[in-house]
Design a protein around this nucleic acid. Structure first.
Lengths: 191, 191, 191, 191
DNA sequence: TATGAATGAGCATTCATTCAT
DNA sequence: TATGAATGAATGCTCATTCAT
């Protein structure tokens, strides 16, 4: 892991910046925005807290940059790919992918934990609606494509919430395949 | 309003306690656990902040008590009521009910905003899984009833998140009936 | 002195407040607004720095309140008192009075040391022009009474600056009577 | 403007040094010693803040050098020039001259704004007493020439303070000639 | 010679809480 | 029982400065 102190990493702006982002992701995921202090992020990297202000401007901007993720290219590749396949890819991406760099969860779920802040909610909306769901909306025929896309997104987010935020027993323990089959059935019901 | 200072509410322990809970619900919902100060809650009721510690022990306990809700009796009444009807009732209860006493949202969604705190996550799990979802699980036949109940819960929670936490455009703007029909279709696909 | 820690002064809001103001005057006079920390003021009184925020709201407000002085009643008493007498009284008040509670200088001169802050300049203008100089203006006949009053004020302030801010040798060392006679001659030249 | 970044001024030590002094004068005058950051001075010139430490040693030394001014040669030229004429020349020099390179004020008045620092007070005393006032003292006959010179200096400084630090209404607004006539009368009363 | 990464001490302010009254 | 004075730790952030490069 890049965020452990062993490597002193002296005088390397890019590496220090990256290490700060890595450390920030872990702490923000575990303790939320308010529960995380800049001092502990800096301490984890082994640098002075003032560097964070220097590199990122403010705690808010550090958070925004740490939580930013690009939509995976594979998902958006084929414009004719069926919706159920897209949804399944997103389900795997959002809920079941290995997000250990973010403390084990997709940044959308991490951000949900700090959704008391309006700026965080804004970022959530942009990354979810303008990113993931736009891909689904584009591929849906029939009435209310945006609404149906959001319902799929709601299922996705809800599954993530139950699995990794709330820790609902069945969803956390059940084999992934069984769950994906059931989720796919729900998505199919919308098309 | 019970929480305005004009009425001194002198020497009425029960009424003061209730007023503190009401005020706490509003502020916690609007600003989250960390964003809300005990001073402002106390000020809204017109009492000294030390009284909160006296009545509730700590901020955390005040939060827990303020966010506690009982599952509506109507939902649990008939053990033979079909799942899709239960789910629709819960959808209405959780997502579309008037929760103005909680600042406009169901406490489950309010708590999700402060899910950075482990105690809040615990309370969420207990209220959602042991409360709402148990009712659904009991009525489901076939394999994996708990998992399917959680998927329904995921859809519910996700809809609430998109509607009132994230503010997704279609779900926030669409007429409620159209949304409920689509959600019912997803639930039906599981049975 | 009320600002020494010996007396614990426990649980006495008014006394603690007054002691904080006393300590603030001394430190602000000696080191200016920016050079003085709230920590040292609080330490001098023997209380926690958080009390300052509680009692005065902010460092700026503490400063404003600490530097506020009322115009001495004796000066404004007789509306027919000649200007040269008023000026002499003010000279004694502003420059030669024992202002040891303010570290040895009139608050107007103390504030001049922190005149880099606009709020301080505003307070200076209000206390000098609307306070002291208005009394002089009212008693001046002939043209430009306000301008002549301000010239008298300029002499006063300038004498204070040379004496206690700059430490000009002659004015600091000369016997007070000789200086007052000369200053009175300058004032007389304006009437 | 010499202090705008467009001109890279690469590898010209003397020009960079001068540009830093120019920028420092403007900022120190506008915001005082404490209110001015080395970063903003360096940024205005377009160089790294570390250069300031390299060229001037410290912020204090940069300030001292930036605020240093020579007494105008015209004033000291004729040893038989009458005092009232010298005083008027100084009044014009100190109070009414265009000091736009210093942000619009004579450095003595600028320094008065940062007189919370002892080093600044020392510099003030040296530049005022040993510079300007020595010229006046030399030309005064009769008793206490140094004291009378300081009283003239007090009037000068006081006028500057009221005009440009405090912003006294009459002195800031009145036509310069009327003010100079009145000031000359006060000076004459001392001879 | 000069850059810019990094420092560490310092700032005012906010908070839930405690304790004497 | 309840008030409110007082606490002390922690917050994000700014600063002049230093030290490798």
């Amino acid at each position: 892991m890049a965020e452990t102190p062993p490597a002193p990493r002296r005088r390397d702006r890019a590496a220090t910046r990256a290490a700060l982002l890595d450390a920030a992701r872990i702490r923000f995921a575990a303790q939320g925005f308010d529960g995380t202090g800049l001092r502990e992020i800096a301490a984890q990297v082994g640098v002075d807290p003032a560097l964070i202000a220097r590199y990122f401007g403010s705690k808010r901007q550090l958070y925004a940059e740490a939580m930013h993720v690009e939509i995976p290219v594979g998902v958006a590749a084929d414009p004719h790919r069926p919706v159920v396949s897209i949804a399944d890819a997103l389900l795997h991406d959002v809920v079941y992918q290995d997000w250990s760099a973010f403390g084990g969860e997709h940044p959308l779920l991490v951000m949900l934990r700090s959704a008391g802040h309006e700026a965080v909610r804004d970022q959530l909306r942009i990354q979810l609606c303008d990113g993931y769901l736009a891909e689904i909306t584009d591929r849906l025929d029939g009435p209310d494509p945006a609404l149906r896309a959001e319902l799929i997104g709601a299922l996705l987010i809800g599954m993530g919430v139950l699995r990794s935020v709330i820790g609902a027993p069945a969803m956390s323990g059940a084999p992934i395949d069984r769950t994906r089959v059931l989720a796919a059935r729900m998505v199919d019901a919308l098309t």
